[in-house]
Design a protein around this nucleic acid. Structure first.
Length: 477
RNA sequence: GCACGAGUGGCAGAGCAGCUAUGCAAUGGACUGCAGAUCCAUGGACCCGGGUGCAAAUCCCGGCUCGUGCUCCA
């Protein structure tokens, strides 16, 4: 069945037809590592991680590239403030990024190109743009001249040149640059004192913000590629600038077949931003929640919707994720993993999940099915029947909640968790059993206060007592 | 101002033309000395006004409200 993706340029869902059958080339704009990564970066990475996972599961061979913009104003500013080299700042934050993403179960991209390693290609591209008359040299840099291909304006945003001309109004003068028109954008910035620089035909300087992605995608994926992605905040101006650069440089269009953009994160209904003081770095978030719970929260809405990161969402996710892992762990340790084909409940769930994922990667629909199967397992587990069903369902969860959504820790870890729980159980077992016996006596004597006292005592040991029809059971909390 | 998106039950959040979304919470029941867990059941929603359809949260038009972008941003 075909995968349909929402394309920002055409503003509708389109069936994914790739340039080369069976292969997908995907470039997603990565981060500018000037500070530790925040949960918005996590959402972006997880969104594309799941897209890549799903495309691969659907049988595509995927080349997935995501970059680091490792030289820019903010990195330089941070480095100057600390009195260190800009690369030290970038490298530190890139390491932080990888550490966070690994914990969030984000599969590594096939390559992580960096601006500082792509300078020759960038220069070459700018030269071509100058040669073709799309760019000009000014005192302070090289600029792309929008008026050389006005028809490309607004392809992603629906705006026209005039709209932006009037909209941006008086901000032009503030730039104080050598731009001929305020909508032109920098391809190469001449170095100011105390700035890192590279040699170029136009003097010492560094690349402008947009050109690197055009150069890196060209270098790694070629003159045409299937999907270009990134956060929706990059649509304008960054991605529109890329369209200008790449298409004018290469002389054909479209270079990118599908544009995919993930939604932003809100905190309690407001945009997350440093100035509002509602900013969460990934490490902030991980102090509060398990990384996989964070992942669950971030895929709780389809990737294009904004996610509101609020208390309720987090608690909800914690709850669901814990249930998922608990029933998976119990099923796995008791019955192992098996084949789910031929089991109607599981085939039905798989079918709905596949349809949901094929329809623009709807993780929310997928989660509903995962929840339903988890519930189904719990039912079987408590009724002690149908072992084939349980192992099949464990296999189902492993395939979809694990491989596709990336929500499960490794099986060894799940089993180790179950085991350590059991070890604790064994350790305290005799004490608990004797207390429970005592409590049973108290209960038959209808000495409720003594019975509750014992329950409280056990509770302090972390033991939860649950009275059932066949007497009391207990478990470690 | 312009552009894009969103407005769904107490809450979160799907669906985007016809069939129970789902989860949490609530209520009733089973089980309980109480509690908890579990199971069963129940109620409750589609911003407003028009329009098109046999049929509209779902499509169209017009409002209103909110968010985001138009400057660096995942």
């Amino acid at each position: 069945m075909a995968v349909r993706v929402f394309d920002t340029r055409s503003r509708k869902k389109r069936e994914l037809v790739t340039i080369e059958e069976g292969k997908v080339s995907l470039y997603a704009c990565g981060i500018t590592p000037y500070s530790p990564s925040h949960i918005g970066h996590a959402r972006q990475a997880i969104s594309f991680d799941i897209i890549v996972r799903w495309l691969r599961k659907s049988g595509f061979e995927v080349s997935y590239i995501t970059n680091f913009t490792d030289v820019d104003d903010k990195i330089i500013a941070a480095a100057n403030e600390e009195g260190v080299d800009f690369l030290e700042v970038a490298n530190r934050n890139i390491a932080d990024y990888f550490e966070s993403m690994d914990s969030l179960n984000v599969i590594r991209a096939d390559a992580y190109p960096r601006v500082t390693e792509t300078i020759p290609e960038i220069i070459e591209m700018i030269e071509t743009l100058i040669d073709k008359g799309h760019a000009y040299l000014a005192d302070d840099g090289v600029y792309f001249e929008i008026d050389t291909s006005p028809e490309k304006y607004g392809q992603l945003t629906g705006q026209t040149l005039e709209m932006v001309r009037s909209g941006a109004g008086g901000r032009v003068d503030k730039t104080g640059s050598g731009k001929r028109d305020h909508r032109d954008f920098a391809l190469w910035k001449m170095a100011k004192p105390d700035e890192p620089f590279w040699e170029s035909p136009w003097g010492e300087g560094r690349p402008g913000w947009h050109i690197e992605c055009s150069a890196m995608s060209l270098k790694h994926l070629g003159e045409r590629f299937d999907i270009h992605g990134g956060g929706s905040d990059l649509i304008f101006p960054h991605h529109e600038a890329e369209i200008f650069q790449s298409e004018c440089c290469l002389g054909h269009d479209p270079v990118v077949q599908y544009w995919i953009h993930n939604g932003m994160i809100n905190i309690d209904g407001e945009k997350m931003s440093k100035s509002l003081g509602n900013f969460w770095t990934i490490s902030d978030a991980l102090q509060r929640v398990d990384p996989l719970v964070l992942r669950y929260t971030l895929i709780n809405a389809p990737y294009r919707q904004p996610v509101d990161f609020n208390q309720i969402m987090i608690e909800d996710s914690e709850n669901h994720h814990k249930r998922l892992i608990d029933c998976y762990g119990e099923g796995l340790s008791k019955h192992g993993t098996g084949d789910w084909s031929g089991i109607p409940e599981l085939e039905g769930a798989a079918k709905r999940l596949v349809e949901g994922m094929n329809d623009d990667f709807n993780t929310r629909v997928a989660l509903v099915e995962v929840q339903a199967v988890a519930k189904w397992i719990r039912g079987l587990l408590s009724s002690r029947g149908d072992e084939g069903g349980i192992s099949g369902a464990v296999g189902w969860i492993s395939e979809f909640a694990g491989d596709v959504l990336g929500l499960l820790p490794a099986d060894e870890e799940v089993l180790a968790r179950v085991k350590s729980h059991e070890n604790v159980k064994v350790e305290v077992s005799s004490k608990v059993e004797s207390l429970l016996g005592e409590r049973e006596d108290a209960r038959s004597a209808k000495d409720w206060s003594r019975a509750d006292e014992i329950r409280d005592e056990l509770s302090e040991m972390g033991v939860v007592v649950e009275d059932g029809p066949d007497g009391a059971t207990w478990r470690i909390e």
